[in-house]
């Protein structure tokens, strides 16, 4: 793995966020939303939300199933950004009190997760 550039060109501003938010699995991304601090969520939202359109446009030109590691990381970052945006943009001051209830709603399955069920078509 090339540590110097873990993301596709043009998205290097997001490198500091890869360790915390470049998570595979919908449930893990949702859990990180709860585990993170408000400051970490705000910093990520501020840095990444202006890049949402560019990132999805870059990713849409490629086959999801064969994304290189850098592309997969960018995808995971954008998926985490969706969770974080709900906390920062929508819930704001309500985020803390609803988090404990949200974690009671277990994510059993998501189309973003691979190999979720041998029978899903």
């Amino acid at each position: 793995m090339n540590q110097a550039s873990t993301l596709p060109g043009g998205f290097s501003a997001l490198e500091p966020f890869v360790a915390q938010w470049g998570l595979s699995g919908t449930a893990r991304r949702a859990a990180q939303r709860t585990a993170s601090s408000p400051e970490a969520r705000e910093a990520f939202f501020e840095a990444a939300s202006p890049l949402l359109e560019a990132a999805l446009t870059w990713l849409d030109d490629r086959d999801l199933a064969t994304l290189p590691p850098a592309g997969r990381r960018l995808m995971d970052l954008m998926l985490s950004l969706g969770h974080v945006a709900l906390a920062v943009e929508i819930q704001g001051p309500d985020e803390v009190k609803s988090a404990v209830w949200r974690d009671r709603m277990r994510i059993d399955r998501s189309t973003a997760d691979q190999g979720i069920s041998s029978c899903s078509n």
Binding site: L59, R62, L64, G82, T111, A112
Partner: peptide
Amino acid sequence: NASTRFAREYALAQ
């Protein structure tokens, strides 16, 4: 594609 994946995950989280 990525946009569909993103919109679906956002819809679930919302």
